[in-house]
């Protein structure tokens, strides 16, 4: 129980408190402490990556072993990971080499762009769903959206003033309201974790 519960809570309390104090102290000792903490996060991240990769291989080898219609894709995933890592580590020029760069530019970048491009179609379908005048508020949203959208195209420049007003005043006011709530929520969550009131992230209950 001590190693699994008390010690982590103690570490969280001490380091949480230290990081709050550190925020207000510009002294080099405080800055070095912050830098070393950031380094530790990176180091633990490297170890976690090993666990992440083992999870990746575990899940996909099990899928391969099941030999169903989707197993082929697990094989492709494993092959791609090993292939890219192998070329990056052992290939001529490493990650700056011709082969690695070309594989990255010719496969990963277009795949990324394809996924990102899908967003435009999804935005259109989401907009179609959102802009239905079911009630007064939805109607207001619809009218506002039409004004802003028209104001953003070439022939809608006559709406520039009202578009600017919508974005700068009502839109910013609503966003700031949400952001203030988020800020307070963050402070409360941080304090709950530092004081050990919130323990769900450790798994299980008390």
């Amino acid at each position: 129980m001590f190693l699994k519960r008390t010690l982590p809570l103690l570490i969280v309390f001490l380091l949480g408190l230290a990081m709050i104090i550190q925020f207000y102290i510009p002294h080099p000792v405080s800055q070095n402490f912050y830098d070393s903490m950031a380094e530790w996060v990176r180091i633990s991240g490297a170890f976690a990556l090993i666990l992440g990769l083992s999870s990746f291989f575990y899940v996909h080898t099990r899928k391969l072993a099941r030999k169903n219609k989707d197993s082929f894709y697990s094989g492709v995933a494993i092959l791609c990971l090993i292939g890219m890592a192998g070329i990056g580590i052992f290939g001529r020029g490493g990650i700056n080499g011709w082969l690695f760069s070309n594989l990255y530019r010719s496969i990963i970048v277009p795949l990324d762009a394809t996924m990102f491009s899908l967003l435009s179609f999804y935005i259109a379908s989401a907009a179609f769903k959102a802009f239905k005048a079911r009630n007064a508020m939805a109607f207001a949203l619809l009218v506002t959206a039409i004004i802003v959208m028209l104001g953003r195209v070439s022939f809608g420049s006559f709406l520039d003033g009202i578009v600017e007003w919508i974005l700068v005043y009502p839109n910013t006011a609503a966003q700031r309201g949400i952001i203030l709530g988020i800020g307070l929520g963050m402070i409360a969550t941080s304090l709950k974790i530092i004081l050990g009131i919130e323990r769900s992230y450790l798994g299980g209950g008390d």
Partner: peptide, 29 residues
């Protein structure tokens, strides 16, 4: 998405199954 988050979430889910009295039902997959 993140390996550190993965280690935490796997532990949280495992503990939740344990707390619910069904540790046998937990599947690492």
């Amino acid at each position: 998405f993140d390996p550190i988050v993965y280690t935490v979430t796997s532990e949280v889910v495992k503990e939740a199954y344990l707390e619910a009295g069904r540790p046998d039902a937990y599947n690492p997959d």
